[in-house]
Design a protein around this nucleic acid. Sequence first.
RNA 1: GCGGGAGUAACUCAGUUGGUAGAGUCACAGCCUUCCAAGCUGUUGGUCGCGGGUUCGAGUCCCGUCUCCCGCUCCA
Length: 480
Amino acid sequence: MEKIVSLSKRRGFIFQSSEIYGGLNGCWDYGPLGVELLNNVKQAWWRSMTFRENIEGIDAAIIMHPKVWEASGHVENFSDPMVDCKQCKARYRVDILLDELSLKKKKEILREIEPQKFSGQISDEKIHARFSELSADEKKLPELLQKFIPCPNCGNKQTFTEARQFNLMFKTFVGPVEDTNNVVYLRPETAQGIFVNFLNVQSASRQKLPFGIAQIGKAFRNEINTKNFLFRTREFEQMEMQFFVKPGSDDMWFEYWREERMKWFLELGMKPEKLRWHKHEKLAHYAKGAFDIEFEFPFGWGEIEGIHNRTDYDLSRHEQYSGKSMKYFDEETKEKFTPYVIETSVGASRSFMAFLVAAYDEEKVPTGEGGEEVRTVLHFHPQLAPVKAAILPLVNRDGMDTIARNLTQELHKSFRIFYDESGAIGRRYRRQDEIGTPYCFTIDSQTLQDQTVTVRERDTMKQERIALTSVKKYLSEKFV
RNA sequence: GCGGGAGUAACUCAGUUGGUAGAGUCACAGCCUUCCAAGCUGUUGGUCGCGGGUUCGAGUCCCGUCUCCCGCUCCA
């Protein structure tokens, strides 16, 4: 991981945000190559999703009406009460603290609090039910925490602070006056911008169910901990598509999109053994079914995409909170109903990192002198590679550099190209390997005679000769 | 959030009992070079993460703080 962080900095993929001021926790900037790679990832996704008849794109505002987040459940569910242990300084989410107690322990606690109700034989279900009632009771919760629950870290009782609200949404104000009436949130997910525009998009684009709306955009979560380079950051980018279907067909479409999305990663060069499905056992408040695509990072498996069956939860809630109908009318069957939603939600920043990690390799290769050495190479899929080709004059004389410069200018019209004339040719190849450039074209003395150039391929390091005039065509074929 | 490690040139790292900040790589200019990083000459680049303190004097000792990495914890 450190090697990748170091390469990212050295070659200009990722810089730490505000580095000259000591950095800001969990914020990162994309450098010249990073932004190319990120754009290529986003473009590959956008093309695969919206170059279809039944998916439209939008770009909604980051700041939305505060009611949106009440309707979505974020105000309610996204703020977790936390307690700190005064003894050992550990911090816990209250719901998790309570959840982790064993059934036996819960029974003991209930017997002590309400002996008249829980003295005899009591079913497990009843215990769970009563216990979650108590957990949700704001008056009883402090007593519960203080008296009965020890700190899982240090084991001490009565060391917890009062439960405090930690809202994971970034709060700010509309207008110059910082008044509670003006509070708005930076969106913690892009999905709601799609839901609230569902009928606008549907009627403007004359779409019929089933159809989807795609969006790429930044979202913000005031995470407690940031971690693992780009994996958990407070500002991140999502690539989301919400697919609206008729209730009853949702399971079928859920499976369809699971397959499609896995295929996308594989087609962009991900190795199957580096990807796996993770099924959510504990479902979020909105979901009927949820699968994650996980990637094996150096620090372990981590989610890069979620595919969820969100049911009609979001549209119904918006209908309820806004008072506007969110229903769809099917002209064919003359039915009116609230569509179900299948969501595919990829982390752009996370998949960026996954593609970077997956591409990174250190290979042993023979040297010109018959020895062996290590080359660092990024095996990006050509479509994702930040630089598509390098143009190299073998030596800077006899007009080779002029030919190379002219070729560079010509290709720049269609591709991102890198011209390099400094250092030995082997060194220049290695530089390109390190940033994942798939092809190098070398202008040599033979070019002067017969107008051909050497193409050197990144992964195999093999070379072939093609006509100078066909370089553009050669590249075009590779990047379709 | 807890525990451990680390912050010195763009990168990787030296830096002695506290006494004038170093190397290699990279980059840049030039020379040399006809296909897989290593030749020659020169050059740029550092308030030693930041802020205090002790001292005649701090990269070095003390306190605070920020950031990154690893392991736990957590991730509707």
